[in-house]
Design a protein around this nucleic acid. Structure first.
Lengths: 365, 365
DNA sequence: ACTCCCTGGTGTAACGATGCACTGACCATA
DNA sequence: TATGGTCAGTGCATCGTTACACCAGGGAGT
């Protein structure tokens, strides 16, 4: 009978896996049922003789058995995988996040599926839908969208969603957890730092202040200046221009450059410039130098984020550090803690740290 | 009978999925068998009335059906996922690769599992093993190991492995495909560029020349200088020091700094310095400035890779660009082309491009 | 009328793990 | 001797998809 030949030669099915030791192999070798092996694997050890447990465990090791994730997922509906959606992992900031999220996931045996939205809202939404329909129940989303209302139905269906680099908003769907640095405090620290160096005319450079992050950073910055007796209306900002739309990476630097060139050419130019992030700060530095001035000497420049670049740049950038590793770990953990229905704990704010390097210095003259 | 109640209320099983439209739902709605739907899904359309095909296709769309990846993998053994193992996605070079690999995968409906080896050979090996035993059959590996012999058994078992940023070696296991930029040509281009600027005393800075990349870059560099009549023994290199071990990211810059400081303090210092990569070049720049000299004016500095940073740095770095997007796409494609048993085509070399910016300039005086 | 082939499908046993409902053995109590 | 209660497991239906083996019905060749 040829079906029997098929059965014999094809114990592993039509497409044999490489690491083909199954739970059945373990069960047989240990002289127990697959149920017992499964029970052990899933922590139901209380119904088991320690001796049996030992035997099964050693069999698992001897055979090099590893549970098949696909089969497990098919059965449980929960894959050991989380999704990570970032604008672009080519950006050092998101690259660092991806690195630390993956490290955190690894400690719990989870894998990370990487998705680059390229700042395309449609693509971002599609990725989330796709991950969900692939059975993934936990996603770290770094959205470029101000509103996350479109995911509320997924949240209601049990998806665990962590929004990274974003603080909670009033209109947020319930169940959403936000992980972010405390932008307000960070900007306040930087404001204080610049004031303490003697600067009084300080500019804030960013794109059109629409995103939550930018708003918060601006607010914190203002707060520090007002405390130092600088009136709100005396704070220099850049009005924005045609360059200003959705920026990423290199464009952010370009924005800083354009803004600074205008600012320095104007009447009564600032002696210090606080950029909304490090990429922008780099563009600011370039413009300062292009104007024949020295960064840290003639004009102080500060950034935000503390990307790798900041330390390496020349001059090394004074900036506000986000505790990336801790934030990434918290984001991953939040994916597994059941949601608090009391509505609290939907925002995890981390304390930023002021990092003073060479791009800021005391007011000259 | 309570089992019946269970069956009724639990049509989706004990852990209901969110997007629960199955192939059976489609089959029923279209009035065909699941086999027919499956046949359509897998391109076996030749045995099918065009009319039937239309009906099934529109049903799929109407119901928003998406095949369950876990079930598909369980059956076929081949997940729609590839693995990407990089030293650290926090490094802009690898971040850029990850971004483009993911984009290439997306075009074919594949997802990318991200793994950071953190330059730990054990971790790198473990990741590969883990991916394989999870059923993944295609991996892009950016190894820190000079030899890849340990994966040969996996290759024999049908794993498709692409080694990125590495050229083929004599001892490579068969079936391994290498994707890399042509380091020799790239370095040659840079050597020519520096020579054409009038430099005669040019240093090559890297860690201990052990890795394949570094060796090739050094060779190409030498070739250009020899063609210009500069004897091999006159080429300045840095002997290496205690700082020199396995470097990554920030450490690479530090290496460049230390090396350059020594070089400039020595007798007859070089007028141009070619660093093995951009990170190192950045460290070189810092040391040049620390010595009171100006980059691009007093001393020319060149890098390799053209990471984002290079353009943003100040001065903008002259470097050798790797066509990352094309290389990433080729790496992904190589994962799916059957292996050529004739042994050819195991190395894909891409043509680099010289990018002249501000860090190099004509010999002063 | 009979075989043989072709077309356009269908039936169904797996893939590997899970976890509920069950059970046989043993002990304690009534 | 019933009765009940642990203990330490086991049996098996099930998740959604695939692909091989099969089959009905029609036409062509002999």
């Amino acid at each position: 009978m040829h079906w029997q030949m098929g059965w014999i030669s094809n114990r592993r099915g039509p497409h044999p896996h490489m690491a083909g030791v199954t739970i059945l192999d373990v069960a047989r070798a240990a002289g127990v049922s697959t149920s017992t092996v499964s029970n052990l694997l899933n922590g139901r050890t209380e119904r088991m003789l320690p001796e049996t447990r030992q035997r099964v465990e050693s069999t698992i090791r001897k055979l090099g058995y590893r549970p098949n994730r696909a089969a497990r997922q098919l059965r449980t509906g929960k894959p050991q995988v989380i999704g990570l959606v970032v604008p672009s992992v080519g950006n050092p900031y998101w690259g660092a996040l991806a690195r630390h999220v993956e490290a955190a996931a690894l400690t719990q045996g989870f894998h990370v599926l990487l998705c680059n939205s390229e700042r395309d809202p449609g693509r971002e939404r599609q990725y989330v839908d796709e991950l969900v329909s692939d059975g993934i129940r936990g996603i770290v989303l770094c959205s470029s969208l101000p509103s996350l209302e479109h995911v509320s139905s997924l949240l209601e269906d049990g998806l665990r969603l962590v929004a990274f680099d974003r603080t909670a908003q009033a209109t947020d769907p319930v169940g959403l957890i936000n992980v972010s640095v405390d932008n307000t405090i960070g900007a306040e620290l930087m404001g204080e730092h610049l004031v303490s160096l003697g600067h009084r005319r300080i500019a804030f450079v960013s794109g059109a202040i629409r995103s939550i992050n930018r708003t918060e950073r601006f607010e914190g910055f203002l707060r520090a200046l007002e405390r130092a007796g600088i009136a709100r209306q005396d704070v220099v900002t850049w009005p924005g221009s045609s360059v200003d739309s959705q920026f990423g990476d290199v464009e952010a630097a370009e924005l800083g450059r354009v803004a600074t060139t205008e600012l320095l050419a104007g009447p009564n130019p600032p002696t210090a410039i606080f950029a909304v992030n490090d990429m922008t700060a780099i563009g600011v530095c370039r413009a300062v130098r292009d104007a024949g001035l020295e960064v840290g000497q003639d004009v102080s420049v500060a950034g935000f984020d503390d990307i790798v670049l900041a330390e390496l740049y020349s001059p090394a950038l004074t900036t506000v550090r986000q505790p990336m590793k801790e934030m990434a770990a918290a984001a991953f953990r939040a994916l597994h803690t059941p949601q608090d229905d009391d509505g609290s704990g939907t925002s995890l704010l981390f304390r930023p740290e002021l990092v003073v390097r060479d791009s800021t210095g005391p007011l000259a003259g």
